[in-house]
Design a protein around this nucleic acid. Structure first.
Length: 481
RNA sequence: GGCGACGUGGCCAAGUGGUAAGGCAAGGCUCUGCAAAAGCCUGAUCACCGGUUCGAGUCCGGUCGUCGCCUCCA
């Protein structure tokens, strides 16, 4: 079955056919770097991470561009987010941008989110934005007033086609009312005149100013991906006005379709309500990582379809953690078994189950990246694997390697929920492993002598420092929590 | 008021016409010196009402409820 994607533009599931065979050009709206990233960002970017990983796994050559907004994204008070933060922290705007850009990548790296191929910054593409704005003015889609430039939404016939909004029915927002320069309330700023106190400013044909929020995406997408490209992603909360404005600007400036497939991710709530600083339920990725392993956070985010909203709660996270542990335990057992397994094809009948799992996984992912179904496939496969390992049949290294590959390639390579190595390989970890093995051997002797007080003491003491022992038919295995 | 989602077993969550995946929790059992891990067994007619259909969580209409967006947000 071919890959199908639900295209928000048109609201239907479509077979995915890239513009150029074998190649996917993809743009995803990135964060505004004025504060630490929160778990909502984690949901969005984990979703696209898995999409990119799966596209690559499917053989596509993907060029993944995700911008960093560092200028022009205003608050409803009209203040620039970055500038306000700079004032609060007594720092230069670009220090703020640099600080939170690093923080963002730090968080994404920790979550195992692969970096985009290009992470262009808005402030680094002012000339490109000015050029596009000028094109829009020249073509009659935009007009200049007092050093600011606005896009005239009445000139864009399709304005509203992504979010199904009609211009006539929209009420004017509060911010529009503040500034009465617009011809229509819904017109949006392409360029804004900088007031004297506004530090982030650039020269332009219309005087000193700064770009509007939406134009950066249009300009940078065009620069790196071309006028028309395959996939545009982002959070559903930006469908209006941001995404809608992008389409209008780009299609009017380029006389060409903008993104062909729109993939938007559902929002995240915390305990049923929207996350906000005033409610005190604002959870940063760094907070979450203190409590949960990155693989668990990913498992949680992927347990719901990307387009659906998800509610973050301690209970749900606990459930995800337990579910993840079951997968990981099985993977670890397979790896450990492999260390001592005889070479050969013994137990090869199980390969059928391996192949079935691979096929089912692919079918799930081909159907609009249904990660919940893909996770269910791994869970069912894990039940089969556990039964297989617990059975009395001889198992050769060949089969074990195939099972391990399912976890590594599908669980690790695509979903990113299986760590690369079952056990860390640095020298202190090796030393720790050797010491644990020594204790396990002492305990083995105690058990042989039916000295259970001693054997239990060893197990309990190890448990206190986070090392869990499990007695299996083939010997005692250990894991850390 | 407009746009858009959603309401499935105790909880989370799949499922877009043919008689309900998966995970967590719970109970019972098996294995174990005891554990741990694992396996097996046990449970829902899908908010409500009406309609289309041989047949509907699954399509249509309505009711109730929840949420998101329309103003900053991934």
């Amino acid at each position: 079955m071919a890959l199908q994607i639900f295209n928000v533009l048109g609201r239907e599931k479509q077979v995915f056919t890239p513009l150029e065979p074998g190649r996917v050009n993809m743009y995803v709206c990135g964060p505004t770097v004025y504060d630490h990233a929160h778990i909502g960002h984690a949901k969005t970017y984990i979703a696209f991470d898995v999409i990119v990983r799966y596209l690559r796994h499917s053989g596509y050559n993907v060029l993944y561009v995700q911008n960093l907004t560092d200028v022009g994204h205003l608050l409803d008070t009209g203040e620039d987010r970055v500038l306000r933060r700079a004032e609060q922290l007594q720092a230069l705007p670009m220090q703020i941008v640099e600080t939170y850009t690093r923080s963002y990548f730090e968080d994404m790296d920790a979550l195992g989110v692969l970096r985009p191929d290009i992470s262009p910054r808005a402030s680094g593409h002012i000339p490109e934005q000015i050029k596009m704005i000028q094109e829009l003015i020249d073509k009659g889609y935009a007009y200049e007033v007092n050093g600011s430039v606005y896009f005239d939404v009445t000139k864009a016939p399709d304005y509203g086609k992504l979010s199904n909004r009609r211009i006539e029915t929209q009420e004017a927002g509060t911010r529009e009312a503040v500034r009465g320069e617009k011809r229509n309330p819904l017109d949006f700023a392409l360029w804004k005149r900088a007031e004297p106190e506004h530090i982030l400013r650039w020269d332009s044909p219309w005087g000193e100013g700064f770009p509007g929020w939406h134009i950066e995406c249009s300009a940078m997408a065009r620069k790196y991906l071309g006028k028309t490209f395959d996939i545009h992603g982002g959070g559903i909360d930006n469908i209006f006005p941001h995404n809608e404005c992008e389409i209008a600007q780009s299609e009017c400036a380029n006389d060409a379709p903008f993104a062909r497939y729109w993939v938007l991710v559902g929002s995240l709530t915390v305990d049923g309500v929207k996350m906000s600083k005033s409610l005190g339920n604002f959870i940063t990725i760094k907070d979450a990582l203190k409590k949960y392993r990155p693989e668990v956070i990913r498992t949680f985010m992927l347990s719901v379809h990307y387009s659906s909203p998800v509610d973050y709660s301690e209970d749900a996270m606990q459930a995800a953690a337990r579910g993840w542990e079951r997968l990981y335990n099985a993977y670890r057992l397979v790896s450990q078994r492999l260390d001592s397994a005889p070479e050969g094809t013994a137990g090869e009948a199980f390969v059928e189950q391996v192949n079935r799992a691979r096929t089912a996984f692919t079918e799930a992912m081909d159907d609009d990246f249904r990660t919940p179904a893909a996770l269910a496939v791994l869970q069912e496969f894990t039940r089969e694997v556990n039964s297989f390992l617990n059975s009395t049949v001889d198992i050769g290294a060949d089969v074990l390697r195939q099972i391990e590959a399912v976890y590594r390639e599908l669980g690790g390579g695509i979903l990113g929920i299986i760590p690369k190595d079952a056990v860390a390989a640095d020298s202190s970890a090796e030393r720790e492993a050797a010491l644990i093995e020594l204790l396990i051997d002492l305990r083995r002797q105690a058990r042989a002598n039916k000295n259970y007080a001693e054997s239990d003491r060893i197990r309990d003491e190890l448990a206190k420092v986070g090392v869990i022992l499990e007695d299996r038919p083939e010997g005692t295995v250990w894991r850390t929590i």
